[in-house]
Amino acid sequence: MAQAIAFYFIAACILGFAVLVVTTRDTVHSVLFLVLDFLFVAALYVLLGAQFLAAIQVLVYAGGIVVLYLFVVMLVNLKRPPEAHEDPHRRTKLGFGLAAAVLLELGAIAVYGSVNPAAPMPATPAIPVSGNTEQVGWLLYTSYLIPFEIASMLLLVAMIGAIVLAKREL
């Protein structure tokens, strides 16, 4: 019962702040709503028993990525907000229509999935450790070692690329 109350409260906060992120005119306010949204997603991870991922969410998303967004919002210093002038070629209704098409697609997948239920998953081999962080670390350094190393290379390449892009002259 308490879990259901916590879930509905967190879900309402996530969706409400997500709507505010998309609809707010002021970009700085939008970034701040994004921080709140990420924090509630981290709370949802705690509810699901993924404490390590919740900590990563707070550290990387709410602490790192959002600060990057805030810096860019401050640096570009909008004298003329993009929404101020109208572009006759832009069709907002088409955007809403395409989003509705995505929603229909998701609904179709859900209906198909409820009509043809998937075969039950085979039992995964037991992991010789207990605790959420130990479990994730065990998987990262055994079964998923190569993707882990590729992710580290990707981050290195992205870091170098961001520096090259943002530098005034090389």
Binding site: A50, F52, L53, I56, Q57, V60, Y61, G64, I65, L68, Y69, V72, L75, V76, T124, I127, N132, Q135, V136, W138, L139, L140, S143, Y144, P147, A151, L154, L155, V157, A158, M159, G161, A162, I163, V164, L165, A166
Partner: peptide, 26 residues
């Protein structure tokens, strides 16, 4: 924990995407 491992990879890709994308915006 496999889903959580994939979520960590998604977060790493999101961080890379944010860094490069914001560099392009600047």
């Amino acid at each position: 924990g496999i889903g959580q491992v994939f979520a960590i990879f998604v977060i790493a890709v999101a961080a890379a995407e944010a860094a490069v994308g914001l560099g392009i915006i600047l």
